[in-house]
């Protein structure tokens, strides 16, 4: 059942016709020609399709496009404004934080979103394992990722890398978190 929706993708307003069954991922890849987010599993199990959906990272493969009419979407292609690479993208290159590159746009969008989440004080499972107060409570201030690779690893575990560049992904993110 076709329906018309609009999306703001990487800063550009787009109108398109989708089937109610069309996921955001397929809307981007097959209807708008934006193949920056990748299809790895199509079931929210690998993270290759990660985009910023209204400012938050999300698996675009499990989001129905029709349910996100009017949404703002940023892909890894949109992080690189005006042709300049995002610092996270530069750091991934410098640390060789990928091999085949297929999970990479999702990893990078995820990492960029994670920096915001930590700055906003969002805890992770790891934050609770090492509470900073003696009463076991977890503070609500910003979480320092630069000095806690365990935090980065936990928060990035929704992005699988079969080439297994994890040992390079973590320092690539740490470097950006430090700056």
């Amino acid at each position: 059942m076709d329906t018309e929706i609009s999306l703001r993708v990487d800063g550009a307003e787009r109108r398109l016709t989708v089937d109610t069954r069309t996921t955001l991922l397929d809307a981007l890849r097959e209807r708008l020609g934006n193949t920056s987010p990748k299809k790895g599993c199509d079931h929210g199990q690998c993270g290759a399709c990660t985009v910023l959906l209204d400012g938050r990272r999300a698996n675009s493969c499990l989001a129905l496009a029709v349910a996100h009419d009017g949404a703002e979407i940023v892909t890894a292609a949109g992080l690189a404004a005006d042709g300049d690479l995002h610092p996270m993208q530069r750091s991934f290159i410098a640390h060789d934080a990928f091999q085949c590159g297929y999970c990479t746009p999702g990893q990078i969008v995820s990492a960029v979103a994670m920096l915001d989440e930590a700055a906003n004080g969002w805890p992770s499972a790891v934050t609770f394992e090492a509470p900073d107060g003696s009463d076991g409570a977890v503070g609500t201030g910003p979480v320092d990722l630069a000095t806690s690779p365990d935090e980065i690893r936990e928060r990035m575990s929704g992005n699988l890398c079969r080439c297994a560049a994890y040992a390079n992904i973590v320092p690539a993110i740490q470097e950006v978190a430090q700056s």
Partner: peptide, 18 residues
Amino acid sequence: PVVAQAVLNGASTQLRNV
């Protein structure tokens, strides 16, 4: 805290956001 911890031990941030 058990509630927050349980949520954070499930799925991934991408899934929890949605």
